[in-house]
Design a protein around this nucleic acid. Structure first.
Lengths: 250, 250
DNA sequence: CTTTCGCTCATGATATATCAGAAGCTCACC
DNA sequence: GGTGAGCTTCTGATATATCATGAGCGAAAG
């Protein structure tokens, strides 16, 4: 038996096993998270642990763990013995999120301004240019939602690139978390955002590469604040109800 | 020990009474968290879910939930089917934590600089003065650890006051989380920190009340960075091992 | 004496079962 | 017709049971 188990053991490398065989809870977490981020689960949708368990072919204990994690991250909210749903953010929540993003990303701007190599400066400048081109295209062309989605994703990756170049793993993780939050909340409203100033990202890149960390900090703050303003406006029309309605059937 | 806990086991009906009772998981979370923060559980200590369940008179499912939450917050770390222990931070972890604190608290400094009323300015100035006095006293007087602990707690409250005056709930929560992290990691090393510059906190308070948000930002960054430097030094001598040793007996 | 292999046992992960609370529906009652 | 007490059925919370895994110890081989 011991021999058999050794034989069936996956490639001695050990680390490889981790990526292949994840825990059920982790699988559930990633699945649900992705569905929320992709909009398959809309803001306010009810998440029944039992139904999810049935759908994903597991008991609802891993589901519970996944939902707890999502709740800690702010993507869902749950009330004891009542239910769990995709979180409906308050206006204040969104403002707060932008305040935190501004703080973290301005810090990242300072750090990467200090630490970037010349190769990396080029990379940032190039990505910024491409991003500006994409936005210009999205303003003039058709309203293809898949295209807008990919632009949005690309924009997020641009911010993550800057965070990465700060060479501070913890900061990167923190920024990623806030980015995900905002991305989820604003995905639909962001698709019809008004057009951005010309060279919006290229100017930011220039400040980041200027070598003056104060300038980098301030440029990043402007960049983020601009997003906040345009979002708060579109949010005014949304008028979300916060009542817990369980819509029994389905 | 285990015997005693069995003898004190409650009757079946002894579960939490209807009103005003928290969930078991939350109770477990707070209990364990407090024990870590108070140093009853040292860095690296093993946390057995079953033993904790026996000690706290509950099944180990609430314990599991509590530990998951603590893990998400970075206070403990666990490896699948091996064990859970109080987290041993890397040097990099600590540096990252300070980078994030600097970002968040500098943001708080800006905001409270803009928003404080004159009453609140007085309050900040007063607390800063008292804090400076306490540190002066702790430098000259005996090394009573309880006294040092209370100074440390007071210092934390000072920072939380500033965060609160920023009037941004999300930012307050984020700062609180990072504060707790650092407090846990550094509690013991912080007790024998070298003395601070004179008027360390009063100068900070003056900048915060100056009405110039840039000055406030920079003053806060200096304040936090100073802590980082003194901590990295004392950490060099600590040399923590990251091996997972489970010490079967006990 | 050192090294290696295999057994044992404690661990966290998961499944199943049961409990208490709350939302919504039904229908008698005003 | 409107209303509310009570039942039904969902929810999450918790308890108990079982499983695969890996650490650590000891015996056997060098």
């Amino acid at each position: 038996m011991a021999v058999a188990s050794k034989l069936t053991k996956r490639t001695r490398t050990g680390r490889a096993a981790a990526s292949g065989a994840e825990s059920l809870a982790r699988k559930a977490y990633e699945q649900i998270r992705d569905e929320i981020l992709q909009g398959k689960l809309a803001v306010g949708d009810i998440l029944s642990r039992r139904r999810l368990a049935a759908d994903l072919n597991m008991s609802f204990l891993p589901i519970t763990e996944a939902l707890q994690r999502l709740e800690a991250e702010g993507l869902v909210e749950s009330r004891p013995r009542i239910g769990t749903r995709v979180r409906i953010p308050t206006k204040q929540d969104i403002i707060d999120s932008f305040v935190i993003r501004e703080a973290l990303e301005a810090q990242a701007a300072r750090l990467c301004c200090d630490k970037m190599t010349s190769t990396e400066r080029d990379q940032v400048a190039r990505n910024a240019k491409r991003l500006d081109d994409l936005y210009k295209a999205s303003a003039s062309e058709s309203e293809d939602s898949r295209f807008l989605f990919s632009v949005q994703t690309y924009h997020m990756q641009f911010h993550m690139l800057i965070a990465e170049l700060a060479r501070c793993p913890g900061l990167l993780r923190a920024i990623e978390k806030e980015q995900v939050l905002v991305f989820n909340w604003l995905y639909d409203t962001a698709t019809h955002r008004n057009s951005l100033p010309v060279n919006f990202h290229s100017d930011l890149a220039k400040a980041l590469c200027s070598g003056d960390r104060m300038k980098a900090d301030e440029a990043m703050r402007k960049h983020i604040s601009y997003g906040l303003n345009s979002v708060v406006e579109s949010l005014g029309t949304l008028e979300l109800s916060k009542r817990w309605r369980l819509t029994r059937g389905r």
